[in-house]
């Protein structure tokens, strides 16, 4: 069966202050995969996601979501930024943060109403955070904050989810809860793309993987390409990881 392509990246080059971070990336992400992007620190993993989402402007190349540029397909895409990228002391509650996920579909000026609130509560329920809906966000643990972020993305009801290091600084329970939700999303036919740094868990969590280190090293099903050869190419000389079967 030929899968549809969810995200197609062509000759993408991105530079921070004109220092290149990503070089000539070609990548096709098929619909319905749960994909990890792995690579060493500074390999450009987060940069790749940010370039796809238009947060960073690439120097060259193009990105299409289901065949059209990102600007036209925003409503199909949800994003979970790195937890450290926001100010957690901001005066707002968990429910409020999740409601922000509805802002995109509302557009300018229009305010979220009952419908949006209901959607937000459902998303909180899904990540097991409903009891904490009125908590100020700084009073949540790292894992809880990450769940709130995930709920915000769920509210967007997108087809493609981009997540930047969702397991960073979260407890084991949350990690399992998050991965279960991601697997559910995949079952529902959604595409999930995760920047990931724990190589040990790749085979267990994901079915698709992209190796990245400035250039694209390899991409494909985990069972075919997650091997020492590609790991070595990505992480440098003789990188070995014990892969659990």
């Amino acid at each position: 069966m030929k899968q549809k392509t969810a995200v197609k990246i062509d000759d993408l080059t991105v530079a921070y202050n004109y220092k290149p971070v990503l070089w000539d990336i070609d990548l096709e992400i098929p619909e319905g995969v749960l994909m990890a992007i792995v690579g060493p620190n500074g390999a450009g993993k987060s940069t790749l996601i940010k370039a796809i989402l238009g947060i960073l402007k690439p120097i060259a190349g193009s990105v299409t979501i289901y065949g059209k540029p990102y600007e036209k397909q925003r409503q199909l895409v949800a994003y979970v930024p790195q937890k450290g990228s926001v100010d957690w002391d901001f005066p707002t509650t968990a429910l409020d943060v999740v409601k922000m996920g509805t802002y995109g579909s509302l557009g300018w000026i229009k305010r979220p109403g009952q419908k949006e609130k209901k959607a937000a509560l459902e998303a909180l329920e899904k990540v097991g955070m409903l009891p904490f809906k009125n908590r100020q966000i700084s009073q949540l643990s790292g894992g809880q904050q990450q769940r709130v972020f995930l709920a915000r993305a769920l509210v967007q009801n997108a087809s493609i989810y981009f997540m930047d290091e969702p397991f960073q600084g979260v407890d084991a329970t949350t990690e399992i809860a998050i991965i279960n939700i991601l697997k559910e999303l995949r079952k529902a036919g959604k595409t999930v793309i995760v920047v990931h740094h724990d190589l040990q868990t790749v085979p267990e969590y994901f079915d698709w993987v992209t190796f990245l280190n400035v250039k694209k090293i390899a991409t494909g099903p985990v069972k075919d390409i997650f091997n020492d050869d590609n790991l070595t190419k990505t992480y440098g000389i003789n990188y070995k990881v014990s892969i659990q079967e």
């Binding site: 000759d11 202050n17 004109y18 070089w23 000539d24």
Partner: peptide
């Protein structure tokens, strides 16, 4: 910055040819 933009572009292009 202007120089670098051209140079990064050039390298991008060369790399593309190589790939």
């Amino acid at each position: 910055e202007k120089q670098q933009r051209t140079e990064v572009s050039l390298l991008t292009f060369l790399l593309h040819l190589k790939n």
